[in-house]
Design a protein around this nucleic acid. Structure first.
Lengths: 196, 196
DNA sequence: TGTCTAATTAGATAAACATCAAATAAAGGG
DNA sequence: CCCTTTATTTGATGTTTATCTAATTAGACA
């Protein structure tokens, strides 16, 4: 957890309208119009607030037909809200172990990916594994829905153990699964981002 | 915990300088000049921030000779920071003493409301008072904005002491007030819900 | 393709906020 | 009672922010 993320998070929560939105989303996903109606505000105002909430990663959006539902990521909320309690402590910095420079990330990719773009093996060390998962997951397009076969087929182009990779993507929050259909999660939800 | 206290708290933490102050105070009490020196800021700036931190209760001051030491109240910090995780829960505001069956709630209404729909008196027992507040507040529509007079006029149809009822609705989080304009809060925020 | 509906962007306005220098206050010690 | 040290208040300045209306975009569906 970096300082500016903490600041951004508390700025986001430090607004009466956004706390009311969080309260609503705690009961379940809700779309913009309904939030606006419930709070007596206009749609652009809700967009404005939702953007701020999404920037912290505590809220994410899922489209269903014409309507975009906003979800509260309660795990993230809990993690971010309690970060201030861990600041300065041993294991606060420990979660910073995931921090790597782009250069270091590229080195991990060089070590685990062949010149033909195949994954040699899944790294066992968490932070290296996350770099690899991030590196390959960028193939998918934001907002697009993939079925399991499409995901598997793509994984097979670079690695045999497609089941493990697919499961890790979901577990580590790179992807979101519902009814065996997969979507890329917003970059804000990734634990590590391979930029390049 | 009231909504505006939560907002004030997160506003207070949502600033780089104040997080840095909190980090310093976690190691022990410190006086203003030293904080200013450590952070490369001027004394008035520190006063400005300390005032905000004190307003939330997470920081308090103790004088020793002519030096004032600022202390971090970590218990308070923990309580305030985790409040957002409990918001909207059944017993967020008070304890499970507030839990009542719909049948019990109806009995309270029968005891305090005449057959003409007038409130005989405001219950002094908290949980009964909340039932009554919930019962009458359902008159308002979600998302609609009311001015003070409209609220007062409605209350007068069932009770003389409109100021108390109006204040209680805001204090107990049934309603939300801003610039003397009132809105119903989302039902999720009510400490007790009279379902009808 | 055109027409819904829902969401976002753009631009404007008014309010809130972080910071500083200068002036003032509060308290202790000679 | 003056001097020194520390903290607060005042007032100014530039920045950020919450909200709105109007215009635009993005999908879904017929």
């Amino acid at each position: 957890m970096q300082l500016d993320k903490m600041v951004k998070f508390h700025k986001a929560v430090g607004d009466v309208t956004r706390i009311r939105i969080i309260t609503l989303l705690k009961k379940g996903p809700m779309h913009g119009q309904e939030i606006a109606n419930r709070l007596g505000l206009r749609a652009p105002t809700i967009t404005h607030h939702i953007v701020k909430l999404k920037d912290t990663g505590m809220v994410y959006a899922r489209r269903d037909k014409n309507t975009i539902y906003f979800h509260l990521d309660e795990k993230k909320l809990e993690y971010m809200t309690t970060a201030i309690l861990r600041i300065g402590e041993e294991n606060f910095l420990k979660s910073e172990e995931l921090q790597m420079s782009e250069q270091e990330k590229q080195k991990v990719v060089q070590n685990f990916v062949t010149s033909e773009g195949k994954l040699k093996q899944i790294p066992s060390q968490l932070k290296k594994k996350l770099v690899i998962l991030s590196y390959f997951v960028r193939h998918f397009e934001t907002g697009k829905v993939y079925d399991e076969k499409e995901v598997n087929d793509y994984i097979k182009t670079f690695h045999d153990d497609y089941a493990t990779i697919r499961r890790e993507w979901v577990m580590q929050q790179f992807m979101y699964r519902e009814n065996n259909r997969y979507q890329l999660n917003p970059v804000e939800m990734w634990p590590v981002i391979f930029e390049k």
